[in-house]
C-alpha cells in the first residue's frame, strides 16, 4: 500500500446549482491494483463523484489528483482521461459509431494510434471479450447486454490504468453479469466501481465504501445468509449463472 495513489480526492465539495452540494468534503484514494466498490442510495452522489473525477463536472471546492498530478483545468483532465477507462451507466450513450469496430477504435485513434494499429487494437480487444463476430454490427441494434460488453471493449481498447465503472450491471441478466465479473477479474487493473448491488461489488472488489451524507466511509464486508426468490426456485439450481 506504499505506492502513490492513482486517484486521490481531498475535501471534494460538488453539486448542482440551486441545491445543496451532494458531496460535502469527500476524501478518496485509489492505489495501483486496488479494487474499491462504492454503494449508496439513489441520489447520494455516486455518479457525481465519478463525473468530478473524470473532469466532467466542476467541483465547488477540493482537490483532485490523478496519477500524481493535481488537476488544474480541462487540459489536465483531457490528458488524464486517456489513462482512465470510464464505463457509463447507459451503454447507449457511450456507443455512437456506425459499426462496433469503429466505436472500439475511436479511443485508440484519439490516443494517436495509426489507423492500422487502432484497427488491430480494436480487433484484439473484441477478440478478448469474445465479441469478434460483432465487429461490423451496428451498436444501437444490439441487445442491452451486448451493448454493455461492447462499451467495456471501447474503454479496454484504450489500455487504461484504472477502470471507473458506473453501475456496470444495471439491467443485465445473470449470464451477462457473470461474464462481466469473469472479465473484470481477469484484468490486472485498479477498479473503482459504483453499484446498487453489494453482491456484485463483493465479487469484483476487495474493499467496500458507502457514500452517506456526502462523505465516504469504509464498510465492513460481512457475508451472511439471505432469503431470496428464484423463478422455479423449487427445482435444483445454481447461483453461478
Amino acid at each position: 500500500m506504499s505506492a502513490a495513489p492513482l486517484i486521490e480526492v481531498k475535501g471534494l465539495v460538488c453539486g448542482y446549482p440551486g441545491r445543496n452540494p451532494v458531496l460535502r468534503g469527500l476524501d478518496l484514494a485509489l492505489r495501483p491494483g486496488q479494487r474499491a466498490g462504492l454503494v449508496g442510495p439513489n441520489g447520494c452522489g455516486k455518479t457525481t463523484l465519478l463525473f468530478a473525477i473524470m473532469g466532467l463536472l466542476q467541483p465547488q471546492a477540493g482537490e483532485i489528483r490523478l496519477f500524481g498530478t493535481t488537476m488544474q483545468g480541462p487540459k489536465d483532465f483531457a490528458e488524464a482521461r486517456l489513462r482512465l477507462g470510464f464505463l457509463f451507466q447507459h451503454a447507449d450513450d457511450q456507443l455512437f459509431s456506425p459499426t462496433v469496430l469503429d466505436d472500439v477504435a475511436f479511443g485508440p485513434l484519439n490516443q494517436g494510434l495509426s489507423r492500422r494499429d487502432a484497427r488491430k487494437r480494436a480487433e484484439e480487444t473484441l477478440d478478448l471479450l469474445g465479441l469478434a463476430d460483432f465487429a461490423q454490427r451496428t451498436p444501437y441494434r444490439l441487445s442491452g447486454g451486448e451493448q454493455k460488453l461492447v462499451a467495456l471493449a471501447t474503454i479496454l481498447a484504450m489500455r487504461p490504468e484504472v477502470l471507473i465503472l458506473d453501475e456496470p450491471t444495471t439491467g443485465l441478466d445473470l449470464a451477462t453479469k457473470a461474464r462481466i465479473v469473469e472479465l473484470l477479474n481477469g484484468l490486472d487493473l485498479a477498479i473503482l466501481a459504483v453499484s446498487h448491488e453489494p453482491d456484485f461489488l463483493s465479487q469484483i472488489t476487495a474493499s467496500l465504501f458507502s457514500l452517506r451524507d456526502g462523505r465516504l466511509r469504509e464498510s465492513a464486508v460481512a457475508p451472511h445468509a439471505h432469503v431470496h426468490v428464484h423463478a422455479e426456485g423449487d427445482l435444483p439450481h445454481s447461483h453461478d449463472d
Binding site: 466532467l56 482521461r81 484519439n110 489507423r115 471501447t154
Partner: peptide, 22 residues
Amino acid sequence: DRAERVHQAMLCRGFKGKFYCL
C-alpha cells in the same frame, strides 16, 4: 440531454474535436 451525455462519453475517450476514419 442525450447529446450532452454522448459528448461527455466521447470526452472520456479522448475526443478532441477530430474524427478519424477507419
